[in-house]
Amino acid sequence: MTNKVRDIICSVIMLAFGAMMVVLAQDIPHKVAKDVGSAYVPTFIGICILIVAAAKLILTLVNKKPAASQKIKFTQDALGGFGTIALMVVYMLIFEPVGFIVSSALYLFVQMILLSDNKNRNPILFAIIAVALPVAVDALFVFAIKMPLPVGILGF
């Protein structure tokens, strides 16, 4: 992907977002006669987004400088990045049904394994941290802050 393609994608997404904002604002009822109404500012912001996104799109399309067509180098580790996102999604989904301690212990262990390499991978240490930290945090919230965290189906 080039810088130009990236900016075009960004502009199109923002144009769609701005248009959605303006369209949805039209359904907001106007209740107070003297007031400009609750749709006024969202419509204004939506129009501003449309203008800025359109300006960005036009400037990108007319940009003939070599930097615009330069390819973006992807040197990043896709497995590490998307794996981290996937782990976070699973963590958030099981946070309530499984409870804070179990979900956090599972997340911590797998995330530490994912981020470590062959040289510094230490599953025993990771397992100890993964269990000890959520238990300690849960105890802090239950006994000191008096705000229990989700317990889940297992009851802890």
Partner: peptide
């Protein structure tokens, strides 16, 4: 960092929940 960052993530979730 491979130990520190996951711990911070858990603290973030606790912070958001609370």
């Amino acid at each position: 960092k491979h130990i520190l960052l996951p711990i911070i993530m858990v603290m973030c979730c606790v912070g958001a929940y609370s």
